[in-house]
Simulated scan of single mutants.
Amino acid sequence: MSDNKPLQHVVLIGFMGTGKSTVGKQLARRLGCSTCDVDAEIVKREGEEIASIFSSRGENAFRAAETEALEAVLSTRDTLVVATGGGAVLAPANRELMMKNGFVVALTADPEQLIARVSQDPDRPLLEGNVRERVYKLLEDRKHAYDFAHLTIDTTTLAVEEVVERIAQAMIR
Rank of each mutant, 00 (worst) to 15 (best):
M1T: 04
S2A: 11
D3E: 08
D3F: 07
D3Q: 01
L7N: 09
L7A: 14
V10F: 04
L12T: 07
I13R: 05
I13E: 01
G14I: 10
T18K: 09
S21Y: 03
S21N: 09
V23Q: 05
G24A: 06
K25R: 08
L27E: 06
L27Y: 11
A28Y: 04
A28T: 08
R30Y: 06
R30D: 03
C33E: 01
C33I: 08
T35Q: 12
C36G: 12
D37G: 07
D37I: 04
V38H: 02
A40W: 03
A40V: 02
V43W: 07
G47H: 07
I50N: 00
I50R: 07
S52E: 14
S52P: 02
S56V: 07
S56N: 03
R57C: 06
R57T: 02
N60D: 15
N60Q: 15
F62T: 00
F62D: 04
E66A: 10
E68N: 13
E68W: 06
E71R: 14
A72G: 06
L74K: 15
R77W: 15
D78S: 15
T79D: 09
L80Y: 12
L80T: 11
T84V: 11
G85W: 08
G85S: 10
G85D: 09
G87S: 13
A88W: 04
V89Y: 04
P92D: 08
P92Q: 11
A93H: 12
E96F: 10
M98R: 01
F103S: 13
V104F: 13
A106H: 02
L107Q: 03
L107Y: 00
A109W: 00
D110M: 02
L114S: 09
R117N: 04
S119T: 03
Q120L: 07
D121F: 02
D123L: 12
D123G: 12
R124Y: 04
P125A: 00
P125K: 01
L126E: 01
L127C: 07
E128I: 08
V135C: 09
K137Q: 13
K137R: 14
L138Q: 01
L139P: 04
H144C: 01
A145Q: 09
H150F: 08
T155R: 01
T157P: 01
L158E: 10
A159L: 15
V163D: 08
I167C: 10
A170N: 14
I172H: 14
